[in-house]
Computed example of a mutant assay.
Amino acid sequence: MKTSFSLRRHVAWIVVACSCVATGAAIAADADKFPSRPVKIVVPTAPGGSIDTTARILAEKLLEVWGQPVVVENRPGASMMIGAEAVARAQPDGYTLMVVHDGAMAINPAVYKTLRYQPGKDFVSISLINSIPLVLLANPSLKANTAKDLITLARQRPGALNHANGGPGTLLPSQLFKAMAGIEYLEVPYKGAALALASTIAGDTQITIADLASASGFIKSGRLRPIGIASSERSRAFPDLPTIAEEGVAGYQADMWVGAFAPVGTPQAIVDKIGQDIRRVLEEPAVRTKMEALYMTPVGSTGAELASIMARDTLRWSKLAKERNLEIEQ
């Protein structure tokens, strides 16, 4: 009896092991054939912004690599939560992806009391795509040509200035600036960067923070005045524009990054293939030229590197939100 039981157990383990090997082989084969049908990239913002532009540049080239349609679907609303939640609940097979910036993945968790998705649990990181500098902008009528001028003005007129924020992605960089500069001004929330920019252009608000890709046209037309780069280094596109750190706020730095994600549970072999293909596309001179012309810096990465950056930034912004007592009701 004892020998018979041991034999049955041994046979059972062999069956399980063979099943695992077969499953692994099947997944690897699926990855080799991926994609065999159209792929959807969800963008949780309206058409025309930096995330949307990034996704469309990527989709165009992935079509060439994969030989399958790559469709960009815009699912805006609720500070990117609607689109992010849709992807989190999608079938984890590699055919639904998300291109999104750090606002949804590192900042929303820091400020929203409840969030219908959990970036670290509901998604698998695929690759960074690019980084885009943030820029502090002023209405041309404001008597401030630099971040230092703005700080002086804010100290002379505490609470008199107001900042148009297009959501948590610019709210927290603004809050960081105020905390590090030792100033205060009013935060005026808008539903998206486009409305925040329009507000400052119209003079309804005096200042705003936006990504350089979205703001560059308004800067060139003179409708907005750039007064400080939020990055740790000056922009090559505007080399004469000092960083905020250079203007007396030592250590200030806030960049925007855009990355690619898939629903958790997506087979790792497929995630790896998508990541490899994205990094391959980002190395193409035509793609780099197109992104750099839009003030984006192409930056590929492994999924693990993106996950590490996301965790680091979530910790940073969560600490600031707690210090500033920032909490947004959904």
Rank of each mutant, 00 (worst) to 15 (best):
L58D: 12
E327K: 11
D149E: 08
I51G: 04
S318C: 01
S308P: 06
I132A: 01
A213D: 10
I27H: 13
L97C: 06
G300L: 07
Q175F: 01
I244S: 01
R279F: 00
S318D: 01
A164N: 03
G48W: 05
M291D: 14
S199A: 12
E233G: 00
I219V: 14
E292G: 09
G251D: 07
Y185N: 10
L150V: 03
A84Y: 01
I132W: 03
A138S: 13
R234G: 03
A254G: 02
S308N: 12
F218C: 02
N74D: 08
S141R: 07
F238Q: 06
K178S: 07
V124K: 04
Q330A: 11
A106D: 10
P189R: 10
A250G: 07
G300C: 11
V39R: 10
V39W: 09
L142M: 06
G67P: 07
A311D: 08
S125W: 00
G251C: 03
V100C: 01
M296W: 11
I207F: 13
G251M: 08
A31T: 14
S232W: 02
A110R: 05
S19E: 06
A25W: 05
F123H: 06
A254N: 09
I82P: 05
S216Q: 13
A237K: 06
N165F: 15
I129E: 00
R234F: 01
P168Y: 05
R312D: 05
V249M: 04
V39T: 11
I57E: 08
S232Y: 00
V72W: 04
I27Q: 14
R280Q: 15
V39E: 11
N325G: 05
R155G: 13
I201W: 11
Y252S: 02
P92R: 10
D272Y: 02
W257Y: 15
P133G: 01
P239S: 06
S235H: 04
I244T: 01
A245I: 13
P242A: 03
D52S: 15
G275V: 08
L136T: 04
A179H: 08
K322T: 09
E85Y: 11
M105D: 03
I27N: 14
G67Y: 09
A260V: 11
V281P: 12
L186R: 13
S19A: 12
T170C: 03
M105F: 05
D255T: 09
A26R: 14
R89H: 10
G217Q: 15
T114Q: 09
L134Q: 03
G275R: 15
S19W: 12
M296G: 14
T45A: 11
K40N: 12
L176E: 08
A46L: 08
I51P: 00
E247F: 02
E329C: 01
A78K: 06
I27F: 08
R236K: 05
T114W: 08
T53Q: 09
P76S: 08
V87M: 09
L63N: 14
A90F: 01
S141H: 02
R316W: 13
N325W: 02
F5W: 10
L7A: 10
S79R: 00
P47S: 12
L136M: 09
A22E: 05
E327D: 04
P69L: 04
A269V: 01
I328K: 07
F5N: 10
E323G: 04
E283M: 14
R116T: 07
A46D: 12
G300A: 10
Q276F: 02
